[in-house]
Amino acid sequence: MANTIIDTNFNFPGQKSIYKGKVREVYTLGNDLLLMVATDRLSAFDVVMPKGIPYKGQILNQIATKMMADTADIVPNWLLATPDPNVAIGYACEPFKVEMVIRGYMSGHAAREYKAGKRMLCGVPMPEGMKENDKFPEPIITPATKAEMGDHDEDISREDILKRGIVSEEDYAVLEKYTKALFQRGTEIADGRGLILVDTKYEFGKTKEGKIVLIDEIHTPDSSRYFYKEGYKERQEKGEPQKQLSKEFVRQWLISNNFQGLKGQTVPEMSDEYIETVSERYIELYENITGETFVKADISDIQNRIEQNVLNFLSE
């Protein structure tokens, strides 16, 4: 669709390198700064869809910015400034090679594994007798190894992370502590907005001073799953699907069109009409998660807007 940002190739002052992830593009600048552009790319089943979603990058960037501000008192983060609706600038970190996934409810990937008969996920037992979307007795941490663009992230246990030396035992204890604290705060924020934070993932990095900080996105619809609190119990009792706020609706649409990112499968065509509905859902997600009205940025020339805003910031 027109007026989306799918790819960038900026050349900012002091720029050293570019890394292109599934959704974000990261520019390394001088003075140990990173500049992260949230594009309008849509990733599902670790596959990037061919078309962008209008305003998606702005939505993800602004939710993450707000949530980092709302959690900075319990966990330090990398963020310094957001000079553009799609851009975050912060301190360069060495990312840990794991995503800290935490689940309060048996949904999504966990539910699919459970239905397949598995009762262990990333070395963590899941109780017998659970139904999809039931609450776990306690939130469980089910890490994943980070994948490059186009590759699938893989489940991994705490034991394997330590055994393979991916993260030291000392650092992993901090990651677990921060993950639990962030999930508790995210749960409280969601509860105040009539939502349930079902599951989410956090990513961390280490600054050159050796400080562990939260990086990337937090509590966005791409990294998290939310249910509406109202009617949750009734739906569970009746065995009905939960009304949810996440990009799971995109995954379900893909599944219904015979795509789960498996070898030999082809991404189904997304019509402009369907993309418009996805954009509208993302705006709904933003407003429900933040409790604020979404203000659309000028998308007549996104590339130029970003470039000018960043140059103005860097020249200050």
Rank of each mutant, 00 (worst) to 15 (best):
R119L: 11
E176I: 12
W78Q: 06
G21Y: 10
P85C: 12
I302L: 13
E276P: 00
L80P: 01
Y178C: 01
P83W: 07
K115N: 12
G123P: 00
V278S: 02
R112I: 01
K238E: 09
P54T: 01
R193G: 06
E240R: 09
T145Q: 06
Y282N: 01
I275Y: 00
K229F: 00
G194Y: 10
P54L: 02
I196L: 15
I306K: 12
M149S: 07
F96C: 03
F249T: 02
I89F: 09
K56H: 10
E99M: 06
V87K: 10
F249W: 12
A72W: 02
Y282K: 03
M68E: 00
P127E: 11
I141K: 01
W78G: 00
K20Y: 06
K201S: 04
N304S: 13
A144L: 14
I275C: 00
D222F: 13
R24M: 07
T187S: 15
S256K: 15
E230L: 08
Q15R: 06
T200G: 08
N304L: 14
N133V: 00
S246H: 07
I59M: 05
V174D: 10
T290M: 08
K135Y: 00
N257G: 03
D171W: 10
K201E: 06
D153R: 09
F227T: 02
I255L: 14
R305I: 00
G104H: 10
E159F: 14
P139M: 13
T293A: 14
G231C: 13
K296Q: 12
A44I: 06
T266M: 10
T290A: 07
E307W: 14
E234K: 15
A38D: 08
N304C: 08
F294M: 05
A44N: 04
I306D: 04
P127W: 04
L311H: 13
K22H: 08
E269W: 02
W78N: 06
V23F: 09
G129D: 04
A190Y: 12
D160S: 14
L29T: 03
A147Q: 13
L245N: 01
T293E: 14
P50M: 09
S43C: 11
D73G: 02
F183T: 04
R119K: 15
N258W: 01
E176V: 13
V87E: 05
A81I: 01
T220E: 00
F96G: 04
M68R: 05
K177Y: 11
Y178L: 01
M68L: 13
K206N: 04
I255M: 10
T65Y: 15
Y172M: 15
